[in-house]
């Protein structure tokens, strides 16, 4: 897989994560129902105070994270600067730590799994793995 294709994959996954985040965020803010294939898990998570760290809804953090990743991968189409990759790595690692903490919180404390959070967690792990893979490869001309 070339760096170009890796960047494309990161971009598409970031856009997908952004759209998911916006959907879940509007449900948090409007207190409206949410499509959930994991039973009442999404509602349990939405209503839990753990889903509002420091008063910030968890999906808002996801939206910001995916936006940064999408912008950085977009900028990578205009420049080969390695600092962009390091920025993506920083964001990806933060994302991995965050989704790991939140998945643990869902399982151990809230005792409910939100389908969208689970998809987003996998999405973030894959993005981070792709960024690391991209870092390990030499830049193409």
């Amino acid at each position: 897989m070339t760096n170009k294709n890796i960047n494309r994959a990161i971009f598409i996954m970031s856009i997908a994560g952004f759209i998911m985040g916006i959907y879940v965020l509007q449900s948090f803010l409007r207190q409206s129902g949410i499509i959930c294939l994991t039973g009442s898990g999404c509602e349990m998570v939405r209503k839990s105070p753990y889903a509002w760290p420091f008063g910030i809804p968890v999906p808002a953090i996801g939206v910001v994270g995916y936006t940064i990743l999408a912008i950085l991968s977009f900028l990578r189409t205009t420049s080969n600067k390695r600092s962009l990759l390091y920025g993506m790595l920083g964001m990806g690692l933060f994302g991995v730590v965050f989704v790991t903490w939140f998945t643990y919180t869902e399982l151990a404390i809230i005792r409910g799994i939100c389908m969208w959070c689970a998809i987003s967690a996998v999405n973030m792990y894959v993005i981070c793995a792709l960024v690391i893979r991209s870092l390990s490869k030499k830049e193409e001309a």
Binding site: R8, A70, T77, T78, S79
Partner: peptide, 18 residues
């Protein structure tokens, strides 16, 4: 900043999403 066809494609996807 160089604007390649890839850049334009990404920009199009961003505009469409927004």
């Amino acid at each position: 900043m160089k604007f390649t066809s890839e850049t334009k494609l990404f920009l199009g996807i961003i505009i469409l999403t927004v």
